[in-house]
Design a binder for these strands. Structure first.
Lengths: 229, 229
DNA sequence: CGTAAGATTTAAACGCGGTCCAATTTGCGT
DNA sequence: ACGCAAATTGGACCGCGTTTAAATCTTACG
């Protein structure tokens, strides 16, 4: 049990709570920032002190790098586990939609409950059944098994100039209701559209799809990421 | 929140460990016996004192009825939860085999990991996808949603007289290897066969199926339950 | 520059599911 | 009927993730 080859990783103490913390830290540090305690706590539904204590433990286990009073980032170890969890989460979302026919605003909740319970064989089986997908139903990239995540060139819908044609690539929200609304409007990944206008002073955003013209509030528009055609 | 009708059950503290204890107690008390502490502990892989403490807590929560130094049985509450878990376990096994193509000796392990993580919607979806099955891949009955389990008339293979024709109904083991062996021999639920002989003094049991003649050790034969034709 | 507001961490405690080991109860064989 | 081995329980403790309350650090602002 010495060679790295055979270190299938005991992963002692890598339990639900740990994985959910790493997941959140990953997402909060995605853009290079450091994750601050209160935000981690808020997202996990625990008190800031609870998160603080837990982060210290994760630091002892070398899963996060912690700068007291400043925030946390992931170690390579922690990132590996976070990416594995995220991969499983997104594969599960895909599986739940395509195989089990759940609606796209329902899958996040189920996937969250299952992501820490499945093992590698289950992960691989889903991956194969789905034809090795690269994105989840909401358009997020699925990390590969070796823990790499391709570069994305998705750009915010709100950054587009009026008149621009584009394709929806990602709808970035974990609020089921909002997601359902956007889905009901037909604005799912793959949808082609033309941006008609972005009204000033936070006004509505008008886009035209094959199905017709939509007028979206700013809070809806800001979660949509696209690729120009 | 007063009528039983609306008591959707808060199910506070009904977590993984609790459900696994209830599951084991259910199985140990199936034939009317009371479940003894050491056996519960052995099956769960904990020490007898650990199980003793936990059983006391389950008794406080009114999930088991405990007679000190004698053993435990389930309360109706506990039985309800146990049957729900068992239902989910067996539906999962079915799902894992039929939808995800896992082998029949692999499904128990996966199902065990998932049975406490899925919710009612997931359970119902599997049930519908599978066409409301009544038995799991090994032939155990799947409890209905209201917590009832039909009477079984499966009889032990070893109780049959030589020359008797029957159909395999259930292969009752949770040892993956043994299960794989039996499956490889083609002795899965639904298989029609004729019992040729049961050698005395614990000798081999010979059965004849459409695929040919099999000679089974006693430890294999005793996990097979059948229905006479 | 000093200070107050806000974020963060510590300290102490808790619930839960465990362990280990000692004390107790049970029940079986003679 | 008794004694002894096996089963069971009790008690002290641990690790983990959590809470509340108090202490401490950071920062922005007058």
């Amino acid at each position: 049990m010495s060679t790295a080859k055979h270190m299938q990783r005991e992963e002692i103490g890598v339990n639900d709570a740990t994985l959910h913390y790493l997941d959140i830290v990953y997402r909060l540090t995605f853009g290079g920032e450091t994750a601050n305690t209160s935000e981690i706590a808020r997202r996990l539904g625990v008190t800031p002190s609870g998160a603080s204590v837990m982060l210290k433990r994760l630091a002892e286990r070398k899963l996060v790098q912690l700068t007291p009073y400043k925030g946390a980032t992931l170690t390579s170890q922690g990132r590996r586990l976070a990416l594995r969890t995220i991969r499983r989460h997104r594969l599960l979302e895909m599986f739940l939609m395509q195989v089990m026919n759940f609606a796209w605003h329902e899958v996040d909740e189920h996937a969250h409950a299952l992501e820490t319970s499945i093992n590698e064989a289950f992960e691989d089986r889903m991956d194969a059944m789905l034809g090795y997908p690269t994105r989840c139903p909401h358009g997020h990239l699925i990390p590969s098994k070796d823990g790499t995540l391709p570069k994305v060139s998705d750009v915010p819908l709100l950054d587009l100039p009026a008149g621009c044609e584009a394709i929806v690539r990602c709808v970035d929200s974990d609020e089921s209701e909002l997601l359902k609304y956007v889905g009901d409007q037909g604005l799912t990944p793959g949808t082609h559209f033309t941006l008609r206008s972005i009204a000033p002073y936070g006004g509505p955003v008008t886009v035209e799809t094959d199905q017709g013209t939509l007028s979206l509030g700013r809070n809806v528009a800001e979660i949509v990421f696209v690729e120009k055609t």
